[in-house]
Structures are given as structure tokens and as C-alpha cells.
């Protein structure tokens, strides 16, 4: 049986002024998925998350959460959203924010919220406005986690955390997936942060979905050239931001299943993403596992 998807987009378009920031997006994120939302600056990641949170109305097509159109009031208790600015009431103490979370959310889990803060020793009496960027991020994530939502929409949730806090916070978020079947959709610039943590990938480029699917499937479907036949291919460093493309990404074979004898190695997540960004003309790759469910849309994406 196929359950209602956590998130589903069908021909989704969003305009900002005269330009279209999301264009004909079609995808489905299954329940319980940990989906990485990646792409260069300005690709539309934040707009997609804000749209899913119901804060931006689609201009065309539709976007559904848990089977209902975004913005539907019935969804509100079931989704949690952390925006890039970590919007918190600056005058409120951390303690007061947690109380607010408890009072406004019927399913509030105090332990889940405190777990995020405890390890980082966030002073609970401090006002949100006096906290550092990383501390505000942790408070935002604590509130999101305390809500015990079914779908968590997280915009760059790890970006200003130190390496230890990243690992710990990601671990806690993933524990909710293992324990409660929560669905995570999280954007990140740092692919290394996502590599062992996500199981689905959604690559946006200029407002279009370029690549979508379960991560093992995507990695298995692409091949790197043999390092011996292309000596320069393996020499580039790791950790480069999505904007700058290391030399080896030029060489990734983008034709799935068409790997020749000199294309033998499966790419890493970073190599795969960079290759697609570096080849804007390469055909999009949307796995059947992430195509929208309705019959007419399956046809439209070529299923």
C-alpha cells in the first residue's frame, strides 16, 4: 500500500515579481524520508521550504503536504518549519519560548526540545536576542523538535553550528525519524553534512528540479571515469561549495546506465551534485520513487 506522501509537488510554480523562482516542479517525498534539498544560491530552496510551510502561495500548479494543499489549517499542527533567519521573539527568554511552544502545541514533547538545548548548554534565562547565531539555531530546532511534527521543514538547519553540535543535532533529528517515522526535508550547502544522514535527494537549479530520488539509487545509476585513464579527475579537493566546481566533476558520466569500460566508480554525493550543476544541459533524472502519484502527472514526467 502506498501511503499519502509527506510532500508532493505537481507543476509547482512560484513567481517573485517578474521572475519565476520555482518552475514546473514535480516531485514526491515519501513519509519517513530524510530528504536533502540541495542546489546553488538562488536555486529556490528557501522559497520551496517557505511554500511548503504555507508562507508563500504557489502561483501555478500545486503543492501538497500530507495529502492536503499547503496552507490548509489542518496541516499546521503536523508540520514544523525553521526558516533561515531563525525567527524568534527576541525579547523572550529561551525558557519563555519553550513555555510558549508547550502552550501552543497540544502534542508538545518537553524532553525532545530540552535534549537539543542541554548538550549545548544554552542558558535558558537568556533572551533570544542576546544569543549567538548558532544558539538561536539550536533554540529554533528545539522548538521544531518539541512540536513532534510529522514533517519538519528545515532551512539550512546546521549552517551555523560547530561540528560537534551538527553531529549531535542531526542525530536527534534522525532519532525522530527512526522512532516516530517523522519526515525531514532539509536544505544544506554542505554536502558532507548530508552524506551519511539523508536517504533521498532533491536537487534544485534555477528553480527546476534536476535530480530527485533515493540516494543509493542515484549513486548507483551514475559512474565516474576510471581515475587511471583520467589522471586529473581525482585530484580535486573535497568540501568545495556548490558554486565552484572541482575539476573531477567535469568528468562524471551523466548518462545513467551508459557507463563505458573507463567509467567504473560510483560517485560520491558531492561529485554527483556538482556534475549536474556543471552540466545544465544534462537530462533531469527523476526517480520513479519520487515522481508524483496521480496518473496524469506520472504521464507528464514520462513514467
Amino acid at each position: 500500500m502506498i501511503t499519502t506522501p509527506a510532500v508532493q509537488a505537481v507543476g509547482l510554480g512560484v513567481r517573485r515579481g517578474r521572475s519565476e523562482v520555482l518552475h514546473d516542479c514535480r516531485f514526491r517525498i515519501p513519509r519517513g524520508a530524510v530528504c536533502g534539498l540541495v542546489g546553488p544560491n538562488g536555486a529556490g530552496k528557501s522559497v520551496l521550504l517557505a511554500t511548503a510551510a504555507g508562507l508563500v502561495a504557489p502561483d501555478s500548479g500545486r503543492l501538497e503536504l500530507l495529502g492536503r494543499p499547503v496552507g490548509d489549517a489542518a496541516n499546521r499542527p503536523r508540520i514544523a518549519y525553521v526558516d533561515q533567519n531563525r525567527s524568534l521573539y527576541r525579547q523572550f527568554s529561551v525558557q519563555r519560548l519553550l513555555r510558549l511552544g508547550r502552550d501552543l502545541n497540544p502534542g508538545w514533547r518537553p524532553d525532545a526540545a530540552e535534549e537539543v538545548l542541554d548538550a549545548a548548554r544554552i542558558p535558558v534565562r537568556a533572551r533570544a536576542g542576546s544569543l549567538s547565531g548558532g544558539q538561536r539555531t539550536l533554540v529554533s530546532l528545539a522548538l521544531a523538535r518539541g512540536k513532534a511534527a510529522d514533517v519538519l521543514l528545515l532551512d539550512e538547519p546546521l549552517s551555523d553550528l560547530d561540528p560537534l553540535a551538527r553531529r549531535r543535532t542531526m542525530g536527534l533529528l534522525l532519532a525522530d525519524v527512526a522512532e516516530r517515522g517523522a519526515t525531514l526535508l532539509l536544505s544544506s550547502h554542505v554536502l558532507a553534512d548530508l552524506e551519511e544522514s539523508i536517504d533521498h535527494l532533491l536537487l534544485l537549479d534555477h528553480g527546476r528540479v534536476r535530480l530527485a530520488g533515493p540516494l543509493p539509487e542515484l549513486l548507483a545509476a551514475h559512474r565516474l571515469p576510471d581515475p587511471l585513464s583520467v589522471p586529473a579527475a581525482r585530484s580535486a579537493g573535497v568540501g568545495a561549495p556548490a558554486g565552484s566546481v572541482p575539476a573531477r566533476a567535469h568528468r562524471v558520466d551523466l548518462l545513467p546506465g551508459d557507463a563505458g569500460p573507463d567509467h567504473t566508480e560510483a560517485p560520491t554525493l558531492e561529485e554527483l551534485v556538482l556534475a549536474y550543476l556543471h552540466h545544465p544541459g544534462a537530462p533531469d533524472w527523476i526517480s520513479p520513487a519520487m515522481r508524483p502519484l496521480t496518473p496524469e502527472t506520472c504521464e507528464a514526467v514520462g513514467a
Binding site: V34, L174, A178, E196, D199
Partner: peptide, 17 residues
């Protein structure tokens, strides 16, 4: 350890465990 415990400690995907 349970999948939840391993996931919380290592931040690897639950499917991996």
C-alpha cells in the same frame, strides 16, 4: 543498541543501521 540509539549517537541514516 536500538536503531534510534545508533542514529542519535552517529547521525547516520536509520536505513543504514
Amino acid at each position: 543498541p536500538t536503531a534510534r540509539e545508533v542514529v542519535a549517537a552517529t547521525a547516520v541514516n536509520p536505513n543504514t543501521v
